[in-house]
């Protein structure tokens, strides 16, 4: 099977920061807003390079979303930056009315998503944001898997006209996708070929899916791993093509199973090709304090959990 090399752990949020820095140099219409988390979002360099295009709004996320919506009028492309929790749940109605319903070209960039935010605990670990955002008409929802992909996605969404939710995280994780990749919104990336099971993963769970595929391969099970970086619009065809071959699927995400990637995949399968599916996701629960690795283990969001889910789904074929 095809294997991937971790070129060194890096945080996805730094990929966002690097992408934003690049955009600052190449697209003068890009502006950035931050609600008192410049360091956490890695927006320092953009701010230093383009102080006139950087807006510190203070701890006032609702205002930040509205400002961003208004800034599009006159041709700017605003990128807002704060934690995923404060990027979505806290400002849902502002995004709904001023951005999504108003068709505004705002890029909502959300770091520290999911359990891997770690020690701060459940107040900050949102596991519902994908669901919140994918339900908004016209909203594109992206959850990138590593540094390189996050950088590429950040650059790509500036060229896409329309509201985008870009979700990434805090911890340093494997960086394994190509540095010079062409990020295509809505286009799944098939990472390995396999015949026994399809593993559809997003965000931090993509690397875990690759690790699981290696373990499964050792057991004689061939897994087809698909990186779904875009949850909406979902690449239905890539999923359907793969499950027609494998006959079962495991979905994996750092999110509640309610409202997440798994449900989106289940919807496609139920409609076109009913297929046994297992969900690697949190089970309708809040998180808690702990290290990222401890939390991913406790809540069943790692390679081991994907292997177990595969064993279960294979029996249902």
């Amino acid at each position: 099977m095809k294997t991937y090399t971790n070129t060194g752990n890096k945080d996805t949020r730094s990929g966002f920061g690097a992408g934003l820095t690049e955009l600052g140099k190449t697209n003068e219409n890009v502006v950035a807003l931050c609600a008192d988390l410049i360091g956490s979002l890695k927006m320092d360099e953009f701010k230093a390079n383009h102080p006139e295009r950087f807006f510190q709004v203070g701890i006032a996320e609702a205002n930040m979303i509205g400002l961003a919506a208004g800034m599009t009028i006159g041709g700017k492309i605003p990128f807002t930056g704060t934690f995923a929790n404060f990027s979505t749940g806290r400002v849902y109605d502002q995004i709904r009315q001023s951005v999504a319903y108003s068709d505004k070209n705002v890029k909502i960039c959300a770091s520290h998503a999911g359990l891997t935010l770690g020690e701060d605990g459940a107040t900050h670990q949102i596991l519902e944001d994908i669901g919140l955002m994918k339900m908004l008409p016209g909203m594109t929802v992206i959850n990138t898997c590593d540094y390189n992909q996050t950088k590429a996605a950040t650059i790509a969404i500036a060229k896409h006209h329309g509201p985008v939710y870009l979700r990434f995280g805090r911890p340093k994780v494997a960086n394994f996708t190509p540095e010079d990749q062409n990020f295509e919104i809505g286009k799944a990336v098939q990472l390995t070929e396999g015949n026994d099971v399809t593993i559809v993963a997003t965000g931090h769970l993509v690397w875990e899916a690759l690790e699981a595929a290696k373990t499964l391969n050792d057991q004689g099970i061939s897994a087809e791993v698909i990186n779904i970086h875009t949850i909406k619009p979902l690449d239905d065809k890539a999923i359907l093509d793969s499950v027609s071959k494998t006959g079962c699927v495991v979905t994996a995400e750092e999110h509640n199973y309610l409202g997440g990637l798994g449900e989106s995949v289940a919807r496609v399968l139920a409609q076109h090709q009913p297929t046994p599916q297992e969900f690697v996701a949190t089970n309708d629960t809040f998180g808690e304090s702990g290290t990222p690795a401890q939390l991913m283990e406790k809540y069943g969001l790692n390679a081991n959990a994907i292997v177990k889910a595969t064993e279960t789904v294979l029996k249902r074929k």
Binding site: V31, E52, R53, F55, A62, N63, M64, I65, G66, L67, A68, A69, G70, M71, T72, I73, G74, G75, K76, P78, D93, Q94, R96, Q97, S98, Y101, S102, K104
Partner: peptide, 22 residues
């Protein structure tokens, strides 16, 4: 911009004002 859910207009108008300056 859409309005109706109250309290959002200041932010939007201010954003448009910032873009006018830029």
């Amino acid at each position: 911009v859409a309005s109706g859910s109250l309290g959002q207009g200041f932010s939007v108008a201010l954003g448009a004002a910032e873009t006018k300056k830029l």
